[in-house]
């Protein structure tokens, strides 16, 4: 029996020749067939075209726009890296970088740590805590604009504000304009964004905990470990993959935050809550300086890439 050569083609269509070696013949005996690689490209072509139109083209065009000075409907003027130089010399933009960093780290830290702790607690009695988890996850499904309007009413400075009313029960006469005070406006936004985002870390961390083999937990019980010890030495370390994904998703979401800021504070008071995302909108849409706004977009894109590329590499490595 002649030895067949294990090639890709032989796998799919090669048959043994009486003269030895391989006589290659397509599987289909009629019509024509594509080789594997062209066929693969053909199959992914629709996705590539869509990706090109919806992602690659806007991305390239945004980068192109960032090299132009465009003001309103006036003709565009090429300025090279002028917009970037202006951007980093602009104290307003530098302020938005600090605000963005505070907002991003604040919301990620609060929502992920809260979600993680809740997941640990829920993991002990998953069935009875189901309605509770559904309620928390629902906040993740509410549009940020809607939750923003709801929180404006909760945080409003007059007697109709729910938060002031509740605090007023314990401290009569208490009143504070949470969104009007530059010292509290950003933290109010961080709190609201964290409230809105805690559902996802909860679900991700719980899923990670629930994937811990039952035998590990049973062995711990058999060895006499108490619930606190099981949580600390087994559940917490083994839920880390879920925490990492939650951190990654929250960081990206918070970096690009816009809706909740637009609705609740409009970047104010005195730009205290203006993030890069809102700055980008203000420059591009209200002042219609499209080139300058595009430069801010590219800076934000770089920040997103800096965070996401290591995470993607790590996830891909894990998949191998």
């Amino acid at each position: 029996m002649p030895e067949t050569v294990a090639t890709g083609e032989a796998d799919v269509g090669g048959i043994s020749s009486p003269k030895g070696g391989v006589r290659r013949r397509p599987l289909a005996t009629r019509g024509w067939r594509l080789k594997d690689q062209p066929a693969a490209w053909l199959l992914i072509a629709p996705v590539l075209v869509l990706f090109g139109i919806s992602v690659v083209y806007p991305l390239i065009d945004t980068i192109r726009l960032s090299f132009f000075d465009i003001r309103g409907l006036a003709p565009a003027k090429y300025v090279g890296i002028g917009n970037y130089l202006t951007l980093f010399a602009d104290p307003g933009f530098r302020g938005t970088l600090v605000t963005t960093l505070t907002f991003t780290l604040g919301t990620t830290a609060i929502s992920v740590s809260l979600g993680w702790v809740l997941a640990m607690l829920c993991a002990f009695t998953p069935r009875t805590t189901l309605p509770f988890r559904v309620m928390i996850f629902t906040t993740f499904g509410i549009s940020e604009a809607v939750s923003g309007y709801m929180w404006i009413n909760i945080l409003r400075p007059d007697s109709a504000g729910l938060l002031n009313t509740v605090i007023g029960v314990f401290a009569p006469g208490f009143s504070h304009a949470w969104l009007g005070d530059p010292n509290t406006a950003l933290w109010a936004l961080i709190f609201v964004a964290s409230w809105s985002g805690v559902g996802l870390p909860l679900m991700l961390c719980l899923a990670a905990v629930q994937s811990i083999p039952r035998s590990v937990l049973e062995a711990a019980y058999m060895d006499g470990a108490r619930p606190a010890a099981i949580m600390r030495h087994i559940m917490m370390p083994l839920s880390m993959p879920g925490v990492r994904v939650a951190i990654f998703i929250n960081l990206l979401g918070a970096l690009r935050a816009f809706d909740i800021i637009y609705v609740m504070t409009g970047g104010g008071p005195v730009r205290a809550t203006e993030t890069v995302g809102y700055f980008m909108y203000r420059e591009s849409m209200t002042q219609f300086k499209l080139g300058y706004g595009a430069a801010a977009t590219v800076v934000l894109l770089v920040a997103v890439l800096v965070i996401s590329i290591p995470a993607i590499i790590q996830r891909t490595a894990g998949a191998r």
Binding site: R156, P157, D158, S175, H176, A177, W178, L179, G180, D181, P182, G268, P269, V270
Partner: peptide, 9 residues
Amino acid sequence: GDVSVMLAN
């Protein structure tokens, strides 16, 4: 009144 209220409204 309070400037924070003005800035919030």
